[in-house]
């Protein structure tokens, strides 16, 4: 669950938050931050997979989790820009159904959550290697979703 502190620290890490006029603009900032985190997590996972030696390595759990998280980060990388465009178009005057805007944030969250959930089952070295990144991506996706919900005034 989001903390107020995480929300503020994350949003304020990007200067655009200070100039934001509404929650739509804050949601866009959060989505960009989620995108950055996913790209960085993906690069790290790819590099870890390469150094694990790929198929046939001793730590198969690590290897599979890396591979699944890479799929999820890839999904985030594809869905986020498309979702950003949807959120960017939002206007309350369009009287569009809230779900038309909420769905994409949910899809980003689903992908981020899948990696988070898979890694949460692991322990030891694997968890140490992947956990912080997985948590970071999931928290930022969650923040983006929370702000899109505020944008459309979804209770």
């Amino acid at each position: 669950a989001l903390t107020k502190e995480f929300c503020e620290t994350t949003l304020r890490s990007d200067n655009r938050s200070a100039a934001a006029n509404d929650t739509r603009e804050l949601a866009l900032v959060a989505m960009d931050l989620a995108s950055t985190a996913a790209a960085s997590a993906s690069a790290k996972a790819r590099s870890a997979l390469r150094s694990s030696g790929g198929r046939g390595s001793k730590d198969r759990d690590t290897e599979y989790s890396l591979r699944y998280c890479l799929m999820d980060y890839g999904t985030v990388a594809v869905v986020l820009p498309a979702c950003r465009a949807v959120v960017e178009e939002y206007s309350p005057r369009d009287f569009q159904a809230p779900f038309d805007y909420l769905e994409c944030a949910g899809r980003v969250m689903d992908a981020a959550g899948d990696c988070w959930q898979r890694v949460s089952y692991e322990d030891g070295a694997l968890k140490r290697a992947l956990w912080n990144d997985a948590v970071d991506v999931a928290n930022r996706a969650n923040l983006g979703q929370a702000l899109v919900e505020q944008m459309v005034d979804f209770p």
């Binding site: 989001l2 107020k4 929300c7 200070a18 934001a20 006029n21 969250m109 923040l143 929370a146 702000l147």
Partner: peptide, 15 residues
């Protein structure tokens, strides 16, 4: 400010 207000509302949000 907007960030503080939005974060107060976002607090506790779970996916």
């Amino acid at each position: 400010d907007l960030v503080a207000t939005a974060c107060e509302k976002a607090k506790g949000h779970e996916a």
